[in-house]
Amino acid sequence: MTTVALDTGVGPLLRDWRRQRRVSQLELALRADSSARHISFIETGRARPSEEMVLRLAEHLEVPVRERNALLLSAGYAPRYPETMLDDPSMGALHEGINQLLRGYEPYPALVVDGRYDVVAANSGIAMLMQGLPERLLAPPLNAMRLTLHPSGLAPRIRNFREWRGHLLHQMQRQLALARSDSLRELYEEVAAYPFPATAQDRDRDEKAPVPVPRFALPMQIEHEGRVLSFLSSISTFNTPMDVTVAELAIETFLPADPATVTYLRSLTA
């Protein structure tokens, strides 16, 4: 994804972000130590905000880092945040830290995805869950959403697929509300249109199929070699990122949700 400066000016863009966040001009002015009159002048193009003001308003509106660059360009300033490839030498410490984290979480599954859910790193626990999947789904770039929801992917193995699918699509909808990404919108429309696997439809008709779930969180219940493994998902991001690539990284770890899953995974490394 690239940063594109729109020719509508920074004012309308800031106004759109403010309305999307459901913040009034007065409330934004109080947060940014400004005045409602000045915010109004910026939004209508009667005043040109300073670079510092653009960044301050973007911070209080929780504008994603990539979109902050677009705001700066629209206001006539240079982008503030670089977008560095993960294999760049300057990212060596980050890359090694991520790999150590993933290895340290084994035998439990864990992976790292970018802003479009393309997998940039994964551990052996994820590889275990992907055993036997078609090669065409495993060809790079490997996409976590496509891999999970495709009827030839993990979908037929997920016992509570209807609930898990709803959770993932809702997660993507929340992300689309925070960031304007055509590629993410295209991915959402693609995976949302996938047909349900026949196994999921069969389970909907079979009242005895579902496995009891914890009440505190929705697990992913997935079949593996004749047994059902249950995982709780946790997602972590980096605080105060100063690089677009880092800002869009998410580390997802899968914590065993029942003793049987813990016992089985530990037996794999015994």
Results as ranks from 00 to 15, higher is better:
Thr3Cys: 09
Thr8Asn: 03
Leu13His: 00
Trp17Leu: 05
Arg19His: 12
Leu26Gln: 13
Asp33Trp: 05
Ser40His: 11
Gly45His: 04
Glu52His: 15
Val54Lys: 00
Leu55Pro: 05
Leu55Ala: 12
Arg56His: 08
Leu57Arg: 00
Glu59Ile: 08
Glu62His: 14
Arg66Asp: 05
Leu71Tyr: 06
Tyr81Arg: 01
Pro82Arg: 09
Thr84Asp: 10
Asp87Ser: 14
Ser90Asp: 12
Ala93Leu: 15
Gln100Glu: 12
Val112Gly: 06
Val113Leu: 08
Gly115Lys: 07
Tyr117Gln: 02
Asp118Cys: 09
Ala121Arg: 03
Gly125Glu: 03
Ile126Pro: 00
Met130Tyr: 06
Leu133Glu: 03
Thr148Ser: 09
Ala155Asp: 07
Arg159Pro: 01
Asn160Pro: 04
Gln173Cys: 10
Arg174Trp: 06
Gln175Leu: 08
Ala177Phe: 10
Ala179Asn: 07
Leu187Trp: 02
Glu190Asn: 11
Tyr194Ser: 06
Thr199Arg: 10
Lys208Gln: 14
Pro210Asn: 09
Val211Asp: 14
His224Gln: 12
Val228Trp: 02
Asp243Trp: 01
Asp243Lys: 02
Val244Lys: 01
Val246Pro: 01
Ala250Glu: 03
Ile251Gln: 05
Asp258Thr: 09
Ala260Trp: 06
Leu265Ala: 08
Arg266Ala: 09
